[in-house]
Design a protein around this nucleic acid. Structure first.
Lengths: 130, 130
DNA sequence: CTAAGGGTTCCAGCAACTGGAAGGTCAAGC
DNA sequence: GCTTGACCTTCCAGTTGCTGGAACCCTTAG
């Protein structure tokens, strides 16, 4: 399988696949003309990484998950720990964003939004009322 | 005022203040030894930017808000539009994160988390059940 | 023979800083 | 006068996770 087919089947762009090779996620063989040749297992790995990334795991977390995925001796508790830690991070981001949204929504509701220059949004940004 | 005092009073690190000068947010004068000298108005600007950044506005949005802030003729509707657009972006992020959290929480609950290698989290990442 | 559509490498850039090196300036203490 | 330490300066490089582009090679079809 060439890189284009892998890209199509995994949904990951060729650029990104080459990048993943650079950072050591994959080690595809090469044929005599220098092209990368991918096995099914490499396609599976890429799909795995793609799903983990779409769930918001960062590269280092993906690396850890991939190592656990390939280690037949590991217990599920390690995976669970990584996932639980990740959920905590997600929840922290969510509450930050909720706080931002509430503050902004409040300011927007207080703002006339017309041609007059009075604007509670700018006032709040410039005055210290945190 | 030197940069250190501005940093202290605005809560923005000196490195970041210099960066903000680089990207054209500020134009502090220099005295004969080359040190930046800041006026109160520059301190206010920095505080303004700091608040906008902490509300999640990106640099370009800050630039727009700053321009509106300094334009005494502008109407509040422009500001309101920027803020409302920003709220929409925040809400999109929130729903992405909520979906991630729900998926992961579901997987974590299905995972024994013990020494056995069976792990629904990894299974889900590797099998196509999207 | 040429063109299209693969593939390869390497270099640069995005956002928004942050860290570090190498050096100039200033005030205080000895 | 000298040193020490806290300031300040500039410039360069690194962060994360790619993405775009240039310049080039390989293969196949018309």
């Amino acid at each position: 399988m060439n890189i284009g087919e892998v890209a199509e089947r995994s949904g990951i762009p060729t650029k990104t696949i080459r990048y993943y090779e650079d950072i050591g996620f994959l080690h595809p063989k090469r044929n005599e003309n220098g092209y990368r040749i991918f096995e099914e297992t490499e396609l599976h790995k890429l799909t795995f990484i793609g799903r983990a990334r779409s769930l918001g795991f960062n590269i280092e977390e993906c690396r850890a998950l991939l190592a656990l995925y390939e280690d037949k001796e590991r217990g599920s508790s390690d995976v669970k720990r990584i996932a639980a830690e990740h959920v905590r991070e997600i929840e922290a981001k969510i509450s930050d964003l909720l706080a931002m949204r509430d503050t902004l929504t409040h300011l927007i509701n207080a703002c006339a939004g017309d041609h007059r220059p009075d604007c509670p949004i700018l006032d709040s940004l410039s005055n210290a009322k945190h």
